[in-house]
C-alpha cells in the first residue's frame, strides 16, 4: 500500500467519524458565529429561542387568552378592540413590529387565518406555526377553497355559516377567538384553556366541546 493510499484511507476514516453536519447546518453555524462575533446577536438568544417558543409559549398563551375572554366579557371587549394591548394584561408581548388582531367566531361566522405570502403568525402568543400553515398548498387553498380546507380538518360547516379568511402580514397577525363550548360553566380559567387547541385559534378547528363531555 502506498503512502498516498494510507493517507486517503485515514482521511476517509476521519470523514466517516467526524459527524460532519449538512451543508445547510454549516451555513447556519457560519451565520450565527459571524453575527455573534460582530456583536449583532447574543449567543444565548438563539438557543433560548427554540425552547421558549416551542415549549413555553407553545399555543398555551393563546389558550389562556381565549379562556379569559370566555369568562370575562370586559376582557373580551378589550381583546377584540386591541389584541396587542389586551395580551399585555398577561404580561405577554404582542408580535414585535406588528399588531395582534383577534377575530371572533360566532354561530353564524367562522374565521380562518392564513399568510398567503409566507408564514406570518402571532408567534409570541401561539408559538411556532405548524408545517401545514407554511405550506404552499394551505397558503393557496385557504383563500380559494376555505370550506374544502376546513372539511379536511374535520370542520363541517352548515351552508348558513359564513367563512371569513384573514391574511396575516408582517404588520397585522390574526388570531381566532373560538366559541365557548356548552356545558363548561363549572370550569375555571385553566380548565377552559385546556380545551383550546392551536388549530382553533388559527381557524382549522371549531367545535371545542370536551370529548369526554356527557351533555344531557
Amino acid at each position: 500500500m502506498s503512502s498516498y493510499d494510507s493517507e486517503k484511507v485515514a482521511q476517509i476514516h476521519r470523514e466517516l467519524h467526524s459527524h460532519l453536519p449538512s451543508e445547510s447546518a454549516l451555513r447556519v453555524k457560519a451565520l450565527e458565529s459571524l453575527l455573534v462575533e460582530k456583536g449583532l446577536l447574543d449567543p444565548a438568544t438563539v438557543d433560548g429561542w427554540v425552547e421558549f417558543y416551542a415549549e413555553k409559549v407553545g399555543p398555551k398563551r393563546g389558550a389562556q387568552v381565549v379562556a379569559r375572554a370566555w369568562r370575562d366579557p370586559d376582557f373580551k371587549a378589550r381583546l377584540l378592540a386591541d389584541g396587542t394591548e389586551a395580551v399585555k394584561e398577561f404580561g405577554f408581548d404582542g408580535p414585535a413590529h406588528a399588531h395582534l388582531r383577534v377575530i371572533e367566531n360566532t354561530a353564524t361566522t367562522h374565521n380562518l387565518v392564513v399568510c398567503t405570502l409566507c408564514s406570518c403568525y402571532p408567534h409570541s402568543i401561539l408559538g411556532i406555526p405548524p408545517n401545514w400553515y407554511k405550506s404552499a398548498e394551505y397558503r393557496a387553498r385557504a383563500v380559494r377553497d376555505p370550506r374544502g380546507v376546513l372539511a379536511e380538518f374535520g370542520v363541517a360547516l352548515d351552508d348558513s355559516v359564513e367563512v371569513r379568511v384573514w391574511d396575516s402580514t408582517s404588520e397585522v397577525r390574526f388570531m381566532v377567538l373560538p366559541e365557548r363550548p356548552g356545558d363548561t360553566d363549572d370550569l375555571d380559567e385553566a380548565g377552559l384553556a385546556a380545551l383550546v387547541t392551536r388549530n382553533a385559534m388559527v381557524g382549522t378547528d371549531r367545535d371545542l366541546t370536551p370529548a369526554t363531555g356527557t351533555a344531557s
Partner: peptide
C-alpha cells in the same frame, strides 16, 4: 393538509436554529 397536522415542526436542529436566528 390535515395529515400534516402532527408533523414535527423541525426535522433537523439547524432548522430550529435558522428560524431562531431569523426571528431574533
Amino acid at each position: 393538509l390535515a395529515r400534516r397536522d402532527g408533523e414535527p415542526v423541525f426535522d433537523e436542529p439547524w432548522q430550529a436554529q435558522v428560524l431562531g436566528l431569523a426571528f431574533s
